[in-house]
Nucleic acid binder design. Structure first.
Lengths: 249, 249
DNA sequence: GACGACTCTCGTACAGTGTGCGAGAGAATT
DNA sequence: AATTCTCTCGCACACTGTACGAGAGTCGTC
């Protein structure tokens, strides 16, 4: 039995190196983000990254254990971009976090592919979490309900945004506009939805719509986010109704 | 200008081959799902897949244009596993679809990595969509609100389940139990949350909890799903209040 | 100054990837 | 019997992550 251990960048502590040297971990992570933004997830290779930094591919391995750890670091960098405006209202705060996270994901579509297989334990990710937990706790949630409510908001945000980001980035990397893609897909959609009159109508409507597709997506995200927050609010008022405080009043 | 087009398995029609031959598309797709289930996303290679089918790697390319298309097909296969029990109640129906999709994703964690970059236009995916749309339309949603409401349910379900599936599968592939991983992560968590007393408390609580982690995740999913559905219900009753029908009564 | 230890870079090498190409086997059609 | 169509597959190419070990440069201690 090999006595495996679960490892991550965050399980090994990292003493920041002395300063003047040519390559530093921060610099590598920044270059990784740039390269991922510019060319996407599957274009990231250690050789290309090394070249971009004017270094050999294997030099990177001194600063980072492997490609996965590099991605973990890049992921936390994105979490760091999420703006966290403070607000009194828990609804406004959680909504801000959701929109901020959405913006970060849209700006860095590769984020999705990294997230998930590792618990997000980077400092920036924890910052987001803490902000969210604080707001929900102020809202009136207690104990594990704080976790659950936070997970609901994050899950919705990620689940709504990730596919959208992946799709738009797939289009961009092939040099296609949304209209072009819709036109190319149209016959397939036509054929496929023939058996489903109800969604056939849905597709027709959205294909013929003159609304800006970006605005459309934002409306859709907003719709769902409001639903999630309304649902959380409903639970809060329900539990308030049942609380002893209420009964004794 | 290369005049690129947007392609997908579903944009090219496929005449099913004659029957007696050794290799068929269905067979390949089934083997793909098996291999993905057994060894995970990054262990899938055309050579391994060919070997499993007793064929050469490049033979597959007669039946399938490339690896991506193969993944699209595998994805739709998973959609086909989602049980779609019919029910009168829209709440029950959407809830069933969400739990069914969750079960499918948990059973096939690689599903996540495929989803997103391509619109899910396979027959099984459309079936799910149609079921969902029908239920929401029965609930009282109309026009694009049907799309929005459906997207909210699916987004939450996927966003909640995908990371969970990815994590448990990452553990499994390294031969680790959840307890082991928690133990390995503990010092890092300890160190990282020192600056965040509120989430420090959250982590403590969940680490010391004696609840079965699987049950815990299900509770969390249920909590969020109820929130989403409550939120949708709230919107419905709000728009019912404002409808002319109500005003004239 | 001299020596050892440490920090960092990188060339080489290995096993593996997706897939384009073209040769060929075998069945179906003319 | 000839031709065409369907299908399999070996080879080759460019490319991947990264283990290893040789070396360069810097530092601390005698």
């Amino acid at each position: 039995m090999p006595e495996q251990r679960f490892t991550s960048v965050w399980t090994r502590e990292h003493k920041p190196r002395r300063e003047q040297q040519g390559l530093s971990r921060d610099q590598i992570v920044r270059a990784t983000v740039e390269l991922l933004d510019a060319e996407g997830m599957e274009a990231l290779s250690m050789r290309k990254l090394g070249a971009r930094l004017g270094a050999g591919a294997t030099s990177l391995y001194w600063h980072v254990a492997n490609k996965n750890e590099l991605l973990e670091l890049a992921m936390d960098e994105v979490f760091g971009e999420v703006r966290l405006p403070a607000s009194e209202s828990w609804r406004e705060t959680t909504s801000n976090i959701a929109w901020g996270l959405r913006a970060a994901i849209m700006a860095h579509p590769w984020f999705t592919f990294v997230l998930g297989s590792l618990p997000a334990l980077g400092p920036n990710a924890l910052n987001c979490s803490a902000m969210l937990c604080a707001a929900l706790s102020r809202a009136g949630f207690t104990g594990t309900d704080i976790d659950y409510a936070g997970a609901a908001v994050l899950s919705y945000t990620i689940g709504a945004t990730a596919p959208e980001a992946a799709y738009t980035s797939a289009l961009k990397s092939r040099g296609l506009t949304m209209e072009q893609a819709n036109r190319d897909l149209a016959p397939a959609v036509e054929r496929a939805t023939r058996a489903h009159p109800e969604i056939h109508a849905r597709f027709q409507e959205s294909a013929g719509s003159t609304v800006d597709p970006i605005a459309h997506r934002q409306l859709s995200f907003d719709f769902g986010l409001i639903a999630v927050l309304d649902g959380l609010a409903a639970r809060l008022s329900r539990s308030a109704d049942m609380s002893p405080n209420h009964l004794t009043n």
